[in-house]
Design a protein around this nucleic acid. Structure first.
Lengths: 130, 130
DNA sequence: ATCAGTGCAAACCATTTGCAAATTA
DNA sequence: TAATTTGCAAATGGTTTGCACTGAT
């Protein structure tokens, strides 16, 4: 099976650097705005394609905001975890959920519901904003 | 403060009945499709406006799907809880989370993050689909 | 020389809105 | 009749796509 070649380009380097720069979620428009402020001209389409590309390479995660907009964050391929998002600065901290196993058990015992997936997000104020 | 009057109309009755009929999430298009299958002509705009209206009256909740589409479910104004969504039939069961208090405590102790909100969703197979 | 990546403009799609006509109270 | 609700069509806004061109290997 042919694995397609990967070109290293300016837009990709720039966008990757932006995501790696801050541990928070960026919408495509956010990224585009940052690029413009750096006088780097990259089309919005390319921003979308690059963000999607990063997700496929497991270098970013998506989150759908309440508005329906997609927001991307740089993300190392670590173990299963969740995010605590600071309402003030937007910074994201990882939270693990080792307790889910027990929870799944009681859910099945009590409601007969067999858990096979979950998504959780936490909001509040991070240590440096508190 | 003037509370505006509320008219009871055919579209509203029909849409309310559809939501109350099944404990699952419906997109506006879903509702519109059901209406059509019942030979009830209601415009998509009215469907959107009515769903929004139900949310304002706290008779429905919204959920943003992965695609970014909004989906609505009939929902009684109960205490804070979460949803367990069956991947097979889409039926939704309520799950409460009394353990969040302790969790918040440990999150603050360990990471200095002060929790003031969270969202969780669970996926799996419900008892009748199992 | 190839093939991947980009820009641009147009296409898409869910959702919203303006406004005149229809309905409810 | 006065106020609300609806339908329709047009506008929005985020995201995707077709295609010719640019750039990387």
């Amino acid at each position: 099976m042919a694995t397609r070649a990967e070109y290293s380009t300016r837009p990709r380097e720039r966008i990757g650097a932006i995501l790696r720069g801050e541990r928070r979620f960026f919408t495509a428009a956010d990224v585009h705005r940052v690029l413009q402020s750096q006088d780097v001209h990259v089309s919005l389409s390319t921003v979308y394609r690059t963000l999607e590309h990063l997700c496929e390479k497991n270098e970013a995660t998506v989150r759908i905001e309440q508005s329906g907009e997609a927001a991307y964050m740089h993300c190392e391929p670590v173990h299963h975890h969740h995010h605590a998002i600071c309402r003030k600065c937007g910074r994201v901290e990882d939270v693990d959920c080792t307790a889910i196993g027990q929870f799944a058990e009681s859910l099945r015992a009590q409601q007969g519901f067999v858990l096979d997936g979950h998504s959780m997000e936490f909001f509040g104020t991070c240590a440096s904003c508190g």
